Amino acid sequence: MQDTNFDTLSQKFAKNIYGTTKGEIRAAVLWRDLEPVINAFSPKSLRILDAGGGFGFFSQKLAALGHEVVLCDISAEMLDEAKAQIDAAQNPLNITLIHSAIQDLSADELGKFDIILCHAVAEWLVDAKSTLQGLLNLLKPQGVFSLMFYNKEAMRFHSLISGNFDYVKRDMKVKKKVKLTPTYPLFIEDVRHWFTLWQMDIFCQSGVRVLNDYLKYHLPPGFSKQELIEMELEYSQREPYLSLGRYVHFMAKRNT
């Protein structure tokens, strides 16, 4: 089996990720979590690795603040889109593009980083645990690892409240795979255990889309998207909502 490559789907993927309300929620939650960490390093210019970062939504945002970013992706089409957006930016952005699987990244070639982002990648990996552990070789001793992954328990809960009981009984496996549905969703407790094994302390935990994916089809008059995003931010770090997020975001540092 192979890890998923989004060549041929790059435009659809980019539109689905950040061109929708779902994308706005993702961006709002992740930036709320990341911004204090970035500010804590201020005024230092950081080295940041965006591993599997696609067209570089956060790479561009961080580079615009004056940080040095390395954006890696296995999809050449995604990187072409990233280059087009970087070239069109109002001010020059210090972003290096690398066409590579993240398993092939080397600290000998790239050096080490203050922050590593790995967002919505793990759930497409055949062996997420080993791949993510390998990424940590590129992290500085006091560096921060920002991991967002697709939550298998939320996937099950959404199916249950939708009445798709046969699907749940099959452990959410289908004969015909939907191309943008992650192949290897992860359980929160498994990922927490990995961080313990890696001797890393999780200092920030958030659910991403803790409300949006469970909204009723018929919403009240005057329903506000902006208010939805505000509620997502308010409840994203509270249980039980955090654990029902379609994605979960962990930020961690080594404890040694």
Rank of each mutant, 00 (worst) to 15 (best):
183 T>C: 08
215 L>I: 13
165 F>K: 08
169 K>S: 09
233 L>F: 02
174 V>C: 02
202 I>W: 04
185 P>T: 00
222 G>A: 07
178 V>Y: 04
148 M>R: 15
222 G>D: 06
221 P>W: 04
154 A>D: 11
208 V>S: 05
187 F>C: 08
215 L>T: 10
149 F>Y: 15
213 D>W: 01
184 Y>G: 09
180 L>A: 13
166 D>S: 12
185 P>H: 05
176 K>A: 09
177 K>Q: 07
159 S>E: 07
182 P>K: 07
172 M>T: 12
166 D>P: 08
189 E>F: 06
167 Y>W: 04
206 S>F: 00
178 V>R: 01
155 M>H: 04
167 Y>G: 03
180 L>F: 10
198 W>S: 07
177 K>Y: 00
166 D>G: 11
161 I>W: 03
211 L>D: 06
218 H>Q: 07
204 C>E: 12
216 K>N: 13
195 F>L: 02
156 R>S: 11
205 Q>G: 03
229 I>S: 15
217 Y>L: 13
214 Y>D: 13
189 E>Y: 02
216 K>T: 07
186 L>F: 13
214 Y>P: 12
187 F>Y: 11
168 V>M: 02
192 R>S: 11
149 F>W: 13
210 V>F: 01
162 S>F: 00
206 S>L: 01
228 L>G: 02
201 D>N: 10
166 D>Y: 00
197 L>Q: 15
228 L>C: 09
201 D>E: 14
187 F>Q: 14
202 I>G: 07
161 I>T: 08
196 T>D: 14
178 V>T: 12
202 I>N: 11
211 L>M: 04
213 D>P: 00
199 Q>G: 01
210 V>R: 12
159 S>P: 02
185 P>E: 06
220 P>Q: 08
184 Y>N: 15
232 E>W: 03
203 F>H: 13
186 L>Y: 02
176 K>N: 04
186 L>A: 02
176 K>Y: 06
150 Y>F: 15
215 L>D: 08
212 N>I: 00
231 M>T: 03
221 P>M: 05
147 L>W: 02
225 K>H: 11
201 D>Q: 08
176 K>I: 03
185 P>K: 06
192 R>L: 10
